[in-house]
């Protein structure tokens, strides 16, 4: 019973992070119909930036700001320089470009920051709360992680629902041509979309790193889990990404807790294939038909 509780709580914390990462994938998918396979590598890179700042004596929070700002810049630059030319082209080309970025950024990080494992600080206590006599796997840091993800989601919802900029970004994502006819600078909106997504991705990378080890490949699994979560929710649906992220976090936590952590990625694959074959439009998508 206690193990079940602990596995569940761990899963929720992980799930919140996968949700954020999936949300970043969905933001990009909605605006450019591209799955950014480089997103994990980009987040890994900005986490290293934060670590560099922190190791130089700054606080965690300065590191956080550096990572998020780095993500913003990186997302914008990547979209402008390498994604723009393949937007709207054959879908395989865009996939290959993001994979190339993935490999290149990962190698670059290894060159700049080294390939060894480094520990990344957590801003809050990593010891679990004690309920009665029992110590549970829920820590002050878990609360921070979940709160951070919630704050970002609320901010994104507010941006897209209530501001003119958000409206223009959504319009540009849904219909480039009509948006241009309405004076929306579609190119700028797409750049902004990539930049915002990279910020959310960077946050996810930083939250995963907190209190654990970073190395250039530490986000590889998260890319897969985030993609599975996004697909589970329907790549088009931000709400679906959140629910998908939480579900994947829980499911994988059970697999890891009861079957073995080596099987987590395979379990993710099984979930993905099951979803794509049984309900390809995702569990939460509004549109009935989707070509997968």
């Amino acid at each position: 019973m206690q193990q079940f509780l602990n596995v569940t709580l761990t899963g929720l914390g992980q799930g919140a992070i996968y949700a954020a990462f999936a949300l970043a994938l969905v933001l990009i998918w909605r605006s450019t119909r591209i799955v950014n396979f480089a997103q994990g590598a980009m987040a890994m890179f900005t986490t290293y930036l934060a670590l560099t700042v922190i190791e130089a004596g700054q606080s965690y929070w300065v590191g956080l700001i550096v990572a998020l700002a780095g993500g913003l810049l990186m997302g914008a630059v990547v979209e402008r320089l390498v994604i723009r030319p393949v937007e709207g082209g054959p879908e395989l080309n865009a996939v290959i470009v993001t994979l190339g970025l993935f490999v290149a950024i990962q190698a670059l990080a290894a060159i700049l920051f080294g390939s060894t494992f480094k520990s990344f600080p957590a801003p809050f206590d990593l010891r679990g709360f004690t309920v009665g006599e029992v110590n549970i796997a829920f820590t002050p840091n878990s609360i921070y992680v979940i709160l951070a993800v919630v704050v970002v989601m609320v901010a994104l919802v507010a941006l897209f629902r209530f501001t003119d900029l958000g409206l223009k970004m959504r319009a540009a994502a849904f219909s480039q041509e009509v948006s241009r006819l309405l004076g929306v600078r579609v190119g700028r909106m797409l750049t902004l979309g990539w930049a915002l997504a990279a910020v959310v991705g960077s946050l996810a990378g930083l939250l995963i790193a907190g209190g654990s080890l970073v190395y250039p490949a530490y986000m590889d699994g998260v890319v897969v889990f985030g993609f599975v979560a996004a697909t589970l929710g329907g790549l088009d649906s931000p709400g679906g990404a959140v629910v998908g992220g939480l579900s994947i976090g829980l499911l994988l936590s059970y697999v890891s807790g009861y079957l073995g952590s080596e099987l987590v990625a395979l379990a993710a694959l099984a979930i993905l294939v099951a979803v794509l074959l049984v309900r390809p439009q995702g569990i939460f998508a509004k549109a009935a038909a989707r070509r997968v």
Binding site: F37, V224, F227, V228, L269
Partner: peptide
């Protein structure tokens, strides 16, 4: 992208 994601997994 779906095929890429599945085979990546």
């Amino acid at each position: 992208p779906y095929l890429a994601g599945a085979t990546l997994a």
